[in-house]
Amino acid sequence: MSITELNKSQTEKLLEVNDLKMHFPVKGGFFKRTIGAVKAVDGVSFDIKKGETLGLVGESGCGKSTTGRSILRLLDPTDGEVLFNGEDITKLTGKRLRDIRQDIQMVFQDPYASLNPMQMVGDIVSEPIKNYHKNRKGEELKAEVMDLLNRVGLPEDAYYKYAHEFSGGQRQRIGIARALALKPKLIIADEPVSALDVSVQSQVLNLLNELQDEFDLTYLFIAHDLSVVKHMSDRIGVMYLGNIMEVAEKSSIYAEPLHPYTQALISAVPDASKIGQKRERIVLEGDVPSPENPPSGCPFHTRCPKAMDECSKIKPQLKEVKPGQHVACLLYE
């Protein structure tokens, strides 16, 4: 495999994910043989352009976090390719993988669990820099970390404090400073605000938006809250049971959702602008099926209010139905 910079001129796309699959083996029986697989991500394709924010939404268990982790190679995908700047990173090993991880950083959901309680904040944030730039140390390094802490809105004295001394919102700022430390190109934010109160949530969202402009960042923004995803993203991908059901510009996906699942998801969000009126809510029956034994054909057909006979037989592929709006549904084939 070559490490050449592939036709950089045409790669407007920073990240391209093609048919990504992540299956977790299920072991059982006397010899602990593999008896099945949890198909957490089952053939996901999308791309993110430079400077863009792509939002991934879906219910819990739909594979959005697993997708994020596979891109960073925190999990080794079962199949498919992840092209970062045109280079397939699923096959990388050793130094090259280490290098590319500088460019892709992650902000985690739980600000209480993702920071080492034994380390001072200064050490948490400087660790990635020390890891990659051995020559930077002492006062120079400290000044750099101070700058970062300052930029994400933490007080000066935060450097010598421990994570437990901070509130949830401030901890998430520490996590963001750590992600920024290596000047990455892509940040994968996995539910960065779902553990926070609304007033703090808005601070963190505003901060992420400011940083995007300032550092020229590209985001993959993973969340279950549709209003938050809409606020943050340029384009949105809707996931269900390991598959992407619809990808489109946020304006079109909210104005005119095409996939029945997207329609149900959007109609389920409580809407404060329509007080007093009884809204037509599409209430889905039942629960999300187990990804160990997903339905045949379209994964959504068991709960889909518009399901047809063919839906249980044919698995629909993502197709461009309207300009920029890709839908995986037999209704549009």
């Binding site: 509130s167 919102g169 609304v198 007033s199 703090v200 949530q201 808005s202 601070q203 969202l205 505003n206 938006n209 549709l226 209003s227 938050v228 809409k230 606020h231 943050m232 909210y254 959007i266 969000v269 809407d271 404060a272 602008s273």
Partner: peptide, 23 residues
């Protein structure tokens, strides 16, 4: 007022969300 301004909403587009300083 601030609580309402802090929440992103589906039906409207906001550049900045309202924030409440402190906790």
């Amino acid at each position: 007022e601030l609580l309402m301004g802090a929440i992103p909403r589906l039906e409207e587009e906001k550049d900045m969300l309202a924030t409440i300083d402190g906790i």
